[in-house]
Nucleic acid binder design. Structure first.
Lengths: 236, 236
DNA sequence: ACCTGAACACCGTTCAAGT
DNA sequence: ACCTGAACACCGTTCAAGT
């Protein structure tokens, strides 16, 4: 009975840009960028391709809109009640993006494109703003705001993307394979590299085994934060 | 006459995996990831698709091989004659990757995928090794080698990718548009954002105008290096 | 062992036609 | 204004057949 209501809702619900984007995100989450197809989309929405093209210019715009929607949601949960230290706020925003990319692995590649292919569009300023606001509070001199913020954003996007690719890969290799066994396999492979050419990678192979992704990610953020506050000490 | 020799050479030259990869890189450089097509490839190599599939498993493997070839070349020019400071060496490797990605913008997305979709394959250990070697020389304690190196690599890949996307975008928007006018347009757009929601981005808009990409990139590397050496001071 | 080329299933996008 | 659905050009990949 709930199904009947559901179904009739689905049928009556007008085709809107929002509904298309929402469905696109679902498809992307379920099967990655390759999972978003106009055929599957028309099927799920019970229409023809022409109907979708009425609301959306092309696939690129659809991907962009999906990216914007997910990023906006990730950055919306920000406000910490007691307005913590700038460092704490930056860590929080960074983790929010990290988790969003982990949940929607397709986001990583999309952000890389999106960020540059239209820096005036909402997503780039939004991320820049949410980090930069707190870099400013850190006491960094005005002339270095952009450099410091860019470094953080680049690291966050790079690291989160890497992490997402790892999860996606573990999933692809075997549905039963968890991150532990995945990194175990990588660790073993690294340990078998030529000692002549890869002494460092071999030496570091075992550190892969007991590392925590989020911890490691935050350690990187902290490294950059330390760099920023060391180069630009507060002069209050 | 030179043309005749050329042409006959082309015809006689056996189809090899190397020649296929080489041509693939040419196509990718010329028109991005969308420019690499089995049709164009067969045309350029004067064969059928089956011939290519004899030497290469599929398009993914071909992209991977192209990535490996370009990265190997970028990291090969490394050895500095007077073995400079670890910091200097890291900056050099970072710049090498930055330039490689700038020259081959398709590399960025490819590296993001590649790096994780097979961390045992040559490209990930190779980059890790070329940076990690010098992180070690920096006097970082063993337990932090991986974290410090990862932070650097993530930043380098993220920032270089961003930069490449910017160049590619400037190129797309207009063939006559150089980076200056491109960033000018972005700067203007940022300056027109809502002052309520985007105070930081607005304040930073003018810094876009006179920033140098490579300088900015290196400043980020230095920030991380400062962070690393501050958290892990030498105890010699 | 290496190459040919027709064929297959699938993709994004368009557009005349309907309501 | 909004939607339908056939059609188009193009894609990666396969495979029986040749040499």
């Amino acid at each position: 009975m709930a199904a009947r209501t559901r179904k009739s809702e689905r049928r009556t619900e007008a085709l809107s840009r929002e509904r298309i984007i929402e469905t696109a995100v679902e498809l992307l989450d379920a099967a990655g960028e390759g999972g978003l197809t106009f055929r599957v989309l028309t099927e799920r929405l019970a229409t023809g391709p022409g109907a979708i093209y009425w609301h959306v210019a092309n696939k690129g715009e659809l991907l962009g809109a999906a990216t914007e929607a997910v990023v906006a949601a990730a950055l919306a949960v920000e406000p910490a009640e007691p307005p913590g230290s700038p460092q704490g706020e930056i860590r929080a925003v960074a983790l929010g993006l990290f988790d969003a990319i982990d949940e929607h692995p397709w986001l990583a590649a999309q952000l890389a494109t999106q960020f540059a292919s239209g820096p005036w569009k909402s997503v780039a300023p939004r991320i820049l703003e949410s980090i930069g606001r707190h870099v400013r509070a850190l006491g960094v001199p005005r002339g270095s705001w952009f450099t410091a913020t860019s470094a953080l954003v680049h690291y966050i996007l790079g690291a989160a993307g890497q992490n997402a690719a790892n999860s996606a890969n573990a999933r692809t290799l075997g549905l039963d394979m968890d991150r532990g066994t995945f990194f175990g396999a990588v660790s073993t492979a690294w340990g078998e590299l030529d000692p002549e050419d890869y002494p460092f990678t071999r030496a570091v192979a075992d550190q892969l085994l007991d590392h925590d992704d989020r911890e490691q990610f935050l350690a990187g953020v902290d490294l950059i934060l330390t760099g920023i506050t060391t180069v630009h000490p507060r002069t209050s």
